[in-house]
């Protein structure tokens, strides 16, 4: 590939809302999905990523560039990931975990799912239902019974801040 000429190869990625992004191949192949496309020779033109929107893809590319610029030092990579995710809200994290799953990027996937778990830890049942879009299929009696049985697990739950 381009390694012989010394010029880094650039790939063009297209989000599902038709935004185009240029990214160095060396960074983009952190995604196993993209790496497979490159290895199969399908990366000549534009790579369409049908499950990722532009906003999320921009964020993922920032991560790809950031993490691939760090030499093999797990400590530094970890602190980059922590910093990268520190200011992201739940919705952004949810989009990123879906994107990481689709792009098959295990390191991002692990870090984002751990961050989501950290955000969820002290949240209420109602918060979880709203954020994950889950329909409550318990009857009010059943729900009251489940909550009563495990009352102690409801101690120390944060007050919902999402309205």
């Amino acid at each position: 590939m381009a390694a012989e000429t010394g010029t880094p190869t650039t790939l063009t990625l297209k989000s599902n809302d038709d935004e185009l992004f240029s990214v160095a191949e060396s960074a983009a192949i952190l995604s196993v999905t993209i790496r497979n496309m490159v290895e199969d020779g399908c990366a000549g033109g534009v790579i369409p990523l049908d499950n990722v929107d532009g906003k999320t893809l921009a964020s993922v590319i920032t991560y790809m560039n950031g993490i691939s610029a760090i030499p093999a030092d797990e400590e530094k990579k970890k602190s980059y990931r922590d910093k990268f995710l520190s200011d992201k809200d739940f919705e952004t994290l949810a989009d990123m975990v879906l994107a990481a799953n689709y792009l098959n990027m295990s390191c991002l996937m692990d870090a984002v799912s751990a961050k989501i778990a950290q955000v969820m830890e002290k949240k209420s049942v109602g918060w979880v239902r709203r954020k994950f879009g889950i329909e409550n299929d318990y009857t009010p009696e059943e729900e009251a019974a489940v909550k009563e049985e495990h009352k102690w697990t409801f101690e120390g739950v944060e007050t919902d801040d999402d309205n």
Binding site: A117, M120, E121, V125, R129, D137, H150, V157
Partner: peptide
Amino acid sequence: ILVKLPVKTLIRFTAVS
């Protein structure tokens, strides 16, 4: 995501659905 949560939280979240 859920495997990364502590036991207390998981038991609480059995009330989600």
